[in-house]
């Protein structure tokens, strides 16, 4: 699958977001091996340099670790992963709130809508 990238953001950042989402969602579990840089670059249609930058950033963020000669793995540090989950929550909520504010909705209106949404959900 080749990915359609957003136009206004470095590709490695979009790959970071994508992998982080997959980890938070549980599609990639703690200790799972990530595809090799080359394989994942081919799969997503990006430059291997970009993919290796993505993996390095994941390591710096403490979300993945590279084991010599074995490859790159999702961290087993559950605390860090919980923190990542919270970071994603904050980030996506902030972006939701700012878009709603742009449309002129108040926080109270948002909360009300969310409650209704929850009732509809359950």
């Amino acid at each position: 699958m080749t990915i359609d990238f957003q136009r206004d953001k470095p590709i490695y950042q979009q790959l970071l977001d994508r992998l982080s989402s997959e980890i938070v969602r549980g599609d990639r579990k703690p200790g799972d091996k990530l595809p090799s840089v080359r394989d994942y670059a081919i799969e997503t249609g990006v430059n291997p340099n970009t993919m290796s930058r993505t993996y390095k950033e994941l390591e710096v963020m403490g979300i993945a670790e590279t084991r010599r000669g074995q490859g790159t793995f999702v961290t087993e540090d559950e605390e860090r992963l919980e923190q990542l989950r919270n970071e994603m929550k904050t980030k996506h909520t902030e972006s939701f709130v700012s878009q709603m504010k742009d449309l002129g909705f108040s926080i109270d209106e948002m909360i009300e809508e969310l409650k209704e949404n929850k009732e509809g959900d359950s």
Partner: peptide
């Protein structure tokens, strides 16, 4: 660099 261009919020075509 392509990353440098995109960090300014546009793609290479733009």
């Amino acid at each position: 660099t392509v990353d440098g261009i995109r960090e300014e919020g546009r793609d290479v075509v733009e």
